[in-house]
């Protein structure tokens, strides 16, 4: 299967709505957790005390297995020389000649491992952090896509519809971690007016949706030699994360961030320190503003917090308008008599 086609995307969303999670997840097993079947949103637990970034390996196992599993979903753009610039700018995001990059997020690399050395309780602690889409509870990327090309499934997995996405990259801008990566020269815009409109298709982790739908697990979960990544029902993963954090006197990342996500990192080092270190490392890069190197801002808010705070006034508006109209019309009619 080359990616998730629109028909399939729509079919699945309908199917999930009708059949419900119980049917879809019947018989699914969790890693590092109980084996009861999943009936609702799914989640992952990433235990940073167990991850060493596959020390000694050229590429971490989670990364290589993700690449192997998802390679058919990767973009197939037209040759580089045929991809127009994003008019009127002299730029385009084309990764087809850099498919081998595994040190950041790209359209051809949906997970990578960040490594930082952090001082904690008088010791230097090395932390390896697998990074990919957090699959948020209220994903601003999906909510704010102007074309509805992204959506959260009933399982809580955020998917990009590659047949509908025009590559405007708004999803990347409103994501606190800037996760989705853009590939030019592919997708719907190539059939419209590629010289002037559109910019490609956005790509990111889909939590191996086709695998989990058939009772499997995401490739990164299966591949981890240290059992650092667990997959199961979101509630169970959250509970496990809390237990583990309590056990080690550690911290959780992903539960509160962006209004809640389905990815729970557990670390013995405070995430504020990890974030600071990531920020420092990023500032030393040749292009410090380049996306693809997510930070870990603690308790980062959701892009929609302010807008959602205004919803009440929007719901009151028609009632207030109608009431004032009733009052004015009544007064006027009285006056006419």
């Amino acid at each position: 299967m080359s990616g998730l086609s629109r028909r399939e995307f729509l079919k699945r969303s309908l199917a999930t709505g009708i059949a419900g999670g119980a049917v879809l997840y019947g018989g699914n097993k969790t890693a590092g957790a109980s084996t009861k079947s999943l009936t609702g949103p799914v989640g992952t637990l990433i235990d940073l005390t167990k991850c060493n970034g596959c020390a000694g390996e050229k590429v971490a196992k989670c990364v290589s297995s993700c690449r192997q599993t998802n390679k058919d979903k990767y973009p197939s753009p037209v040759p580089s020389e045929q991809i127009p610039y994003y008019w009127p700018n002299k730029k385009k995001e084309d990764w087809q000649d850099k498919k081998e990059v595994t040190t950041r997020l790209t359209p051809y690399n949906w997970i990578f491992v960040q490594k930082v050395k952090v001082e904690h309780e008088g010791k230097q602690v090395e932390v390896a952090i697998p990074r990919r889409c957090m699959h948020c509870d209220n994903p601003p990327c999906a909510n704010l896509c102007p074309f509805g090309a992204q959506a959260k499934t009933a399982e809580g997995v955020t998917l990009i519809n590659k047949d509908l996405c025009l590559g405007g990259a708004k999803c990347r801008d409103v994501c606190p971690w800037g996760i989705p990566a853009r590939q030019a020269g592919v997708g719907l815009y190539m059939k419209i007016a590629p010289e002037y409109l559109g910019a490609g298709v956005m790509y990111k982790c889909d939590l191996c949706y086709d695998r989990i739908k058939t009772g499997g697990q995401p490739a990164c979960v299966e591949a981890c030699p240290n059992g650092a990544i667990s997959f199961g029902s979101k509630a169970e993963m959250k509970k496990l994360a809390q237990q583990r954090a309590k056990e080690i006197g550690g911290f959780i990342y992903g539960d509160k961030e962006n209004g809640g996500t389905s990815t729970f990192y557990v670390s013995q080092v405070p995430f504020e320190k990890i974030h600071e270190k990531l920020k420092e490392n990023k500032s030393k890069q040749p292009n410090p503003t380049a996306p693809g190197y997510p930070l870990m801002p603690v308790k980062v808010g959701n892009f929609l917090d302010t807008a959602n705070g205004m919803v009440l006034s929007m719901l009151v508006a028609p009632v207030a308008g109608a009431a004032l109209a009733g009052f004015t019309a009544y007064k006027k009619m009285k006056g006419d008599e």
């Binding site: 704010l144 929609l304 205004m310 929007m314 508006a317 028609p318 308008g321 109608a322 009733g326 009619m333």
Partner: peptide, 30 residues
């Protein structure tokens, strides 16, 4: 800045919905 334009969009939408509701009810009553 999407965070600015979304707030403008919401505020203007409140005004539009208010006016449209007013318009419909006012003229139907009359």
């Amino acid at each position: 800045d999407y965070s600015v334009t979304i707030v403008i969009h919401y505020i203007a939408a409140v005004a539009l919905i208010f006016a449209v509701a007013y318009h419909i009810v006012y003229h139907v009553l009359r």
